[in-house]
Simulated assay, not measured.
Amino acid sequence: MNNPTSTNELTKEQQILRVMRKVLAAVVKDVTPVAGRPNPLRESTIRDIRECFGLIAARERELAEMLGLAPMRPYYPGEEPKSAKVVQLVRPAKNDGE
């Protein structure tokens, strides 16, 4: 068996976790009832789904740390500080001779 920290295995595991997260999210989306309708899932099932998402996220963080990758965060436009600075413009006073 290969070393469990090999990059190829971690990459494969990351791919599996990503697909599992997407499929689980799609299932949740498909069974989420419209407003006013009862949820078809039991409370215990909802707790289990949340736990699955938590375990997937925790393992993805562990794998990223093992690879020395920076923590992944969502990017929101406008989140980063602007590099431009606001400059005050002042009109010159008019000369009486013009």
Score class of each variant (00 low, 15 high):
M1W: 07
N3Y: 07
N3V: 00
N3T: 03
P4W: 02
T5W: 06
S6H: 09
N8K: 11
E9Y: 04
E9A: 07
Q15C: 01
L17P: 02
L17I: 10
R18C: 00
M20A: 11
R21D: 13
K22I: 06
V23E: 14
V23N: 08
L24C: 04
A25Q: 14
A26V: 00
V27D: 14
V28W: 00
V31T: 15
V31I: 14
T32N: 06
T32I: 08
P33R: 08
V34H: 01
V34K: 09
R37M: 14
P38M: 07
P38R: 10
P40S: 01
L41N: 05
R42G: 05
E43W: 02
I46A: 07
R47P: 01
R47L: 12
D48Y: 05
R50C: 00
R50Q: 14
E51W: 01
E51N: 11
C52V: 09
G54T: 05
G54K: 07
L55P: 01
I56K: 00
A58L: 12
E60T: 10
R61F: 01
A64Q: 06
M66K: 12
M66P: 00
L67D: 05
L69H: 15
A70E: 11
P71S: 09
P71Y: 06
R73T: 09
P74A: 14
P74S: 14
P77S: 12
G78Q: 07
E80C: 02
P81L: 12
K82F: 03
K82H: 06
S83F: 08
A84E: 15
A84Q: 13
A84P: 00
K85W: 02
V87I: 15
V87N: 02
Q88A: 09
L89V: 07
V90G: 02
N95W: 03
